[in-house]
């Protein structure tokens, strides 16, 4: 079954419907929340991995959009500017899933795409601003 990563932006509103519940119940989709930052009264963001059939998927997205949620494909890769990177390793210290690590010799960055949840922690932490997320 196809699996897609979505980046949702919620308008600032008091309460949001339990959207993941609706995706499961009404559209037969399996959502997996990779990252969520939602505070009442502020714009929120959630990165979801959704598994399901194509038709259900399209209907699910139409539902999310009808709720005023902006749906975009989520980042699927990180891009490293090697001219800026000084191999300090600071990004590896904030990557909780262990997607960014240093090799055994400690002098090369290793990125394991399968482990990355596109949380942007490395982007923010990099003192050289050498990492960007790409789509």
């Amino acid at each position: 079954m196809p699996r897609k990563r979505l980046d949702l932006t919620f308008p600032p509103r008091q309460a949001t419907k339990p959207i993941t519940y609706h995706l499961v119940k009404d559209f037969d989709l399996v959502p997996n929340i990779l990252r969520a930052q939602i505070h009442p009264g502020q714009e929120g963001r959630m990165v979801l991995e959704v598994t399901g059939r194509k038709e259900d998927f399209d209907a699910g997205i139409a539902f999310l959009e009808s709720e005023g949620i902006v749906v975009r494909p989520a980042a699927t890769d990180i891009c490293l500017d090697e001219d800026k990177c000084v191999l300090c390793g600071l990004c590896t210290a904030v990557c909780r899933p262990g997607a960014l690590t240093l090799n055994g010799a400690g002098d090369e960055l290793v990125f394991d795409k399968d482990k990355c949840v596109y949380c942007e922690a490395c982007v923010v932490a990099c003192p050289r601003r050498a990492i960007t997320l790409t789509f």
Partner: peptide, 22 residues
């Protein structure tokens, strides 16, 4: 440098700030 240390019995991932390569 192994990438993890033990602090108060807990395994803690460790990352450098100073570049070994440089």
């Amino acid at each position: 440098r192994s990438g993890a240390i033990e602090v108060q019995g807990k395994k803690v991932p460790a990352g450098p700030i100073s570049s070994l390569k440089k």
